[in-house]
Design a binder for these strands. Sequence first.
DNA 1: TAAATATTTAG
DNA 2: TAAATATTT
Length: 479
Amino acid sequence: MSTEISGSVPVIVWFRDDLRLADHPALDAAVTSGQPVLCLFVLEEDTERRPLGGASRWWLDKSLASLDRDLNRLGGQLILRRGDPRRILPEVAASVGATALHFNRRYDQAGSDVDDTLTAMLRQRGVAVVSHAAWLLFEPGAIQTKTGGPFRVFTPFWRAHRPHLAPKAQLRRRPETIAFFKTAVASEPLASFDLHPTRPDWSAGLAESWTPGEAGAKARLVAFLDDGLSRYAAERDVPAAGASSRLSPHLRFGEIAVARVAHEVMKAQDSGSTPVEAAEKFLAEVGWREFAWHLLSVFPDLATRNFQTGFERFAWQEDAVALSAWTTGHTGYPIVDAGMRELWQTGSMHNRVRMITASFLVKHLLIHWRLGEQWFWDTLVDADLASNPFGWQWVAGTGADAAPYFRVFNPITQGEKFDPGGGYVRRFVPELAQLPDRLLHRPWEAPPLLRPDPLLYPPPIVDHDEGRKRALAAFAERR
DNA sequence: TAAATATTTAG
DNA sequence: TAAATATTT
């Protein structure tokens, strides 16, 4: 499989959030250069980049192992290093005499700052540095409003971008063979990164729910195209229906290219196997990811500062007890608690339920969206630098194209509407499993004999009607 | 990607 | 008088 080119100088492919071999522009460019390829990953430390959360660290561990195995099969390996890339990359490049570096671009401020500095350093030393577009369907800022500014509302953003999407865009096939650089290069053992949780190891539920790595990503896309996409328009909002793509963590770590996902969905639509409405609904969800990254590129502080001005002095409540009831899934609202427990157990949460649980924290409890964002950041396997803060600000009403302040999700009616059969709540809140459907989302109304023991399942920590009125008053006041 | 409430309409 | 529709928050 592998071809040695002895005496040749290598090119480096720096893997980051693109842990795959297929549809990988940087790898493709390196392979087609004809020079031997050195594949490198750097666990970034000592930079300004936001440290990964626990669930993301677990996923990264498995994904790196998977990529290394895939490279092994082609006769190569993934060189692992840790530290500041601005120190590591020049060191590795010098030690092997690399003449070129290829990587796929990233769009967060801290990451692109690192890349810019590094690019200048290496070019000064005669190393060609080439960055490639792979993370998004559209480069941020490439399409602007008619007045030449950045889009701030999703609908016009997507209306301007969607027509430019076409099958086959941006795709490179997986290389059949790779000529690897064969000289030994120092690599640290993956285990030394200490990415897998210990004492305690809480990852069993994640392992049951997910298969990190490129093969797992591909299998997930195939499964979604086979069962999910065609009923996506009707059932994507029903957490028990299983119509979600579940591709988000695979996209987060770049185990599959977003261009490949969009391509296959458009192909399914063209072939007539998928209703146009279903395909468009799904593509629009990918569009929200695009929009979030577009927004982060014009507002780098998305994770820390309110996008909408006027919230600086908002009277967020400090309530450690309520926050803890929320994180552990003991608010007394079944749909909220099911969501928070799904997150804790599986490292993910259905999109509809993310909105409900986020709304509950921000509106009913008046707790700062940033605390919720941080909890999600730590517990989600798909925690994304742009999508996560974007979503939180959207719900809180502080973001771009945000939900209006008076939009307060009703956890009772949302539960009844989107989990009418109770399959979702019964799965994650088993202490309510015996309640009939009509009481499942309002257990406090059950007759005493049926009502759950308050020690086993608590009554609501805040009355919905009171919480709603309090939120409306607080949010109306800041206007 | 909302909910609550007021108002109108159908029967 | 329930259901559909409009308005307000």
